[in-house]
């Protein structure tokens, strides 16, 4: 499976604005490049990235060919309650990756 790095604060105060960061290994092959033998290298990109916070989607991004390899996402949310953040990436060649992180809100 693809390797991902997630950065979520382990603890936060209720109402705090927290920053969430997610980096994943992925070639993001645009489908426009020509390989050694003159044929097009098939497109292989991530289409969608989502982040759910205790089952509610709080962030979604649609990716395109213009996004570089190993895409890095950074976004903010409000710490509302303790629980789980679930990160999902999906794309070409049936690419699927899921990561989770826990947060304690007090």
């Amino acid at each position: 499976m693809a390797r991902a790095l997630i950065n979520v604060p382990a603890h936060a105060k209720k109402g705090d604005i927290i920053e969430i960061k997610a980096l994943i290994s992925h070639p993001m092959e645009s489908g426009y490049r020509v390989g050694m033998n003159g044929t097009i290298i098939p497109r292989d990109i991530i289409h969608v990235f989502t982040c759910d916070y205790n089952g509610v989607e709080i962030f979604r991004a649609d990716f395109s060919q213009a996004v570089a390899a190993n895409p890095f996402m950074s976004f903010h949310t409000i710490a509302t309650e303790s629980g789980k953040l679930v990160f999902r990436w999906s794309g070409d060649k049936d690419f699927e990756a899921t990561e989770t992180a826990e947060i304690i809100v007090e």
């Binding site: 390797r3 790095l5 997630i6 950065n7 960061k21 980096l23 290994s25 190993n70 890095f72």
Partner: peptide
């Protein structure tokens, strides 16, 4: 900042492998 913070440095993916 990308270099200094290991969870943002893409090379960390290689280090872990």
């Amino acid at each position: 900042a990308m270099q200094d913070n290991e969870s943002e440095n893409p090379a960390t993916l290689w280090v872990l492998d």
